[in-house]
Simulated assay, not measured.
Amino acid sequence: MPQPAHSFSASPTAVSHIGVLHGAGYVGGALIRLLAAHPAAALHTVTSRTFADQPVGAAHPSLRGQVDHTFTAPDEIAFGSLDALLVAAEHGRSMQVVPGILEDGFDGPIIDLSADFRFRDPAVYPEWFDTAHPAPGLLADAVYGLPEWSDEIGGASLVATPGCYATGITLTLAPLAQQDVPFTAHVTALTGASGSGATPSSATHFPDRDGNVRPYKVLGHQHRPEIRQTLGTHVSLDFVPASGPWTRGIWGTAQIEWPKATDPNTVSSWYEEAYAGAPCVRCSSDRLPSLQPAVGTPFCDLGWKTDGSTLVVGFALDNLLKGAASQAVQNLNRMLGLPETAGLLTSPVSVST
């Protein structure tokens, strides 16, 4: 059963030097953009095999004139000059490189954005990812980095940032799972084309995607065991993912089979208490969120509606931000002892009149 994490804040100290491994993809670009504006964590090194020795703008044209960095080849990175490391590699790559980085003596925080360290049970990897984990001993040490439900991130050396669907669905269902009542959730969620990564494929080809909704991995998506690992075995989950005709953002609903009648005020109290100290979750009672207000932000928007017998909870988030890069920065901030929202939210400004 998940327990809500305590809110976390601290005073910024000296600027930390951050490395981003495999920074040429969509998530890498989002990480670079966030670090460029971070008040206490600066991008020091970013790697890419394809774009080695080329400026960051070669892979991310929108960053031209904003980020003055050149990609470094992965085998040329100087880990001794880094205070922390963000790994944005594809699934299956991090589990190959992170053990070697640790063996070479790097002792700073590592935040991985793939699935390679999310599961405690190494048997999950051959079943869901068609590969045996080469370093199963690290799985016990890795902390699952969902900030709203983990108090262990700040003291961790290796944090596994959750998947995008897993983030939205877990945040949606965790306040219900916390009630220790068995229930079933039927979830349908749609994601934009950027969720498929930067490499083109037939699934992301514009003529096939434009104006179309395409379900995939129905009842068999790899985020399903990730979600149940966090929520507990008393939660049954039926998950239907689909691709929508937009670029960024995930929108979904969970229809809940709750075992007894539920008062709307009770449901609201569950969510409001769970996320009272969560700066990157926005809750709305008696209505479901829409997608557009969440895109381009570090927030997951949650909303719910019940008539007493049927409970529907909706969620919306940016898959590249709260579903990946901004959540990784939340984790980075905690691991460095910085305010959790540093570089993500604008601090309020007091104006004298």
Rank of each mutant, 00 (worst) to 15 (best):
141 D>E: 15
135 A>F: 06
106 F>N: 14
100 G>C: 09
83 D>S: 09
114 S>I: 08
95 M>N: 12
84 A>I: 04
154 G>W: 03
132 A>C: 14
172 T>Q: 01
141 D>I: 09
118 R>P: 03
146 L>F: 08
114 S>A: 13
86 L>P: 05
99 P>Q: 09
145 G>T: 12
119 F>V: 00
83 D>P: 04
130 D>E: 15
84 A>L: 03
81 S>K: 10
124 V>L: 10
151 D>V: 11
88 A>Q: 03
93 R>Q: 10
134 P>W: 00
100 G>V: 11
164 C>E: 05
89 A>F: 04
88 A>L: 07
127 E>D: 11
93 R>F: 01
140 A>R: 09
166 A>D: 05
143 V>E: 08
121 D>E: 03
143 V>A: 06
87 V>Y: 02
151 D>K: 08
170 T>H: 01
103 E>P: 03
156 A>H: 00
150 S>D: 01
168 G>K: 03
170 T>N: 02
155 G>D: 15
166 A>N: 08
136 P>R: 07
86 L>I: 05
110 I>A: 00
83 D>G: 11
149 W>Y: 12
132 A>L: 10
134 P>R: 07
87 V>Q: 01
91 H>K: 10
115 A>D: 10
139 L>R: 05
165 Y>V: 10
126 P>N: 02
121 D>S: 03
164 C>Y: 09
109 P>H: 03
170 T>W: 06
83 D>Y: 02
